[in-house]
């Protein structure tokens, strides 16, 4: 087991006073709190900081830790010296029982003393677990069954950490789920202790960005590239929707950025169905041969169109 240098984790000297330790904890906790910081690694960093403060912020625990520090050095292997007894006494007394994220190092010093004291423990409900679940747009159109795999931390009757439990379930995803929606799966969270019920599993829906469609509330947006002559003369073009292709009529004299509504082809929700908007985008041919160039020149001379007539007045 690795020795943890709690002073280094909080960035304070071993001689630091209570106030310095508290300030250091508050600053780091704000910085790395998983609700405030979504970057990878922030949560682990926060757990370290919280564990360090759990010890250094408590005069008794800090004194015990200071005693043990003479036996270990950060990053090196560490064994609790024989005969070491946590002054707190009873096993699993600290309030994090049954859901501690603290390290083995912490548990071996301040955690339970299995077998030493058998106390009747009140039944305790397992933890609720929250997971993000990626859902493809296509999957929101009808009810789906999706496999979900996750890992649950596992504790024995003394609150000591056991190998993680790997779970896999099939979960029914109702039609019309929206981004951020929470789906509760009863009893599939953390294991209860002493006969307490299991916690629940909450799946938070995250719609996966689609290569073609963008989401705007219940509506979908698809960008449709058009040749200049299609925009000018009108056309019928094949447009993808979430449920197959359709033919869309492009009116003559269409513009880039213009939106055409395709009713009922958006996302479905429990109450309404959204629409699909085709946003037009006029695209020039990448190159023109000599005959095409001549045709463009004819158009230039005949059209009498100045796209900058408004713009130049305003500058």
């Amino acid at each position: 087991m690795e020795f943890k240098d709690y002073y280094a984790m909080l960035g304070v000297e071993p001689t630091a006073d209570e106030k310095t330790i508290k300030t250091a904890y508050r600053r780091l906790a704000r910085k790395y709190h998983p609700d405030m910081n979504k970057e990878a690694g922030a949560e682990d960093k926060f757990k370290e900081v919280a564990e360090a403060y759990e010890v250094l912020g408590d005069a008794k625990k800090r004194a015990e830790y200071d005693q043990l520090r003479q036996y270990g050095r950060a990053g090196e292997n560490f064994e609790v010296p024989p005969g070491w007894q946590h002054a707190g006494g009873f096993g699993g007394q600290h309030e994090h029982f049954g859901g501690s994220d603290f390290s083995d190092f912490f548990e071996s010093i301040f955690g339970g003393q299995p077998g030493a004291h058998h106390r009747a423990r009140p039944p305790r409900r397992g933890r609720d677990i929250e997971l993000e679940m990626p859902v493809f747009l296509e999957e929101t159109l009808a009810e789906q069954t999706k496999p979900v795999e996750y890992v649950l931390p596992n504790y024995d009757e003394h609150g000591r950490r056991q190998p993680d439990q790997h779970k896999s379930l099939n979960v029914k995803i109702p039609a019309g789920v929206a981004d951020g929606e929470r789906i509760r799966v009863k009893g599939q969270g953390g294991q209860g202790s002493a006969g307490g019920p299991n916690g629940d599993l909450y799946l938070v829906v995250r719609l996966v960005p689609h290569p073609v469609f963008d989401v705007d509330g219940h509506d979908l947006i698809v960008t449709v590239p058009l040749a200049p002559w299609e925009a000018a003369l009108g056309a019928r073009v094949e447009v993808p929707t979430l449920s197959g292709r359709i033919n869309l009529t492009i009116p003559a004299d269409s513009q880039t950025g213009q939106r055409l509504r395709i009713k009922g082809k958006g996302l479905q929700s429990k109450h309404a169905s959204g629409d699909l908007y085709a946003v037009l985008k006029v695209v020039m041919p990448p190159r023109n041969d000599e005959s095409a160039r001549q045709l463009w020149a004819q158009l230039r001379d005949a059209a009498g169109f100045d796209p900058r007539s408004q713009w130049s007045k305003q500058a």
Binding site: R26, A29, R30, H33, D35, M36, F46, A50, D128, E130, R182, R184, Y202, V204
Partner: peptide, 28 residues
């Protein structure tokens, strides 16, 4: 509802782990 439950848990985390009062939790 379940959204309220999630928000409540988040509020409690902020209150405990960042040592905030409720007004500060609400602002955060």
């Amino acid at each position: 509802d379940d959204a309220a439950l999630g928000r409540l848990r988040q509020a409690l985390r902020l209150q405990r782990e960042l040592e905030l009062d409720w007004q500060a939790v609400a602002v955060a």
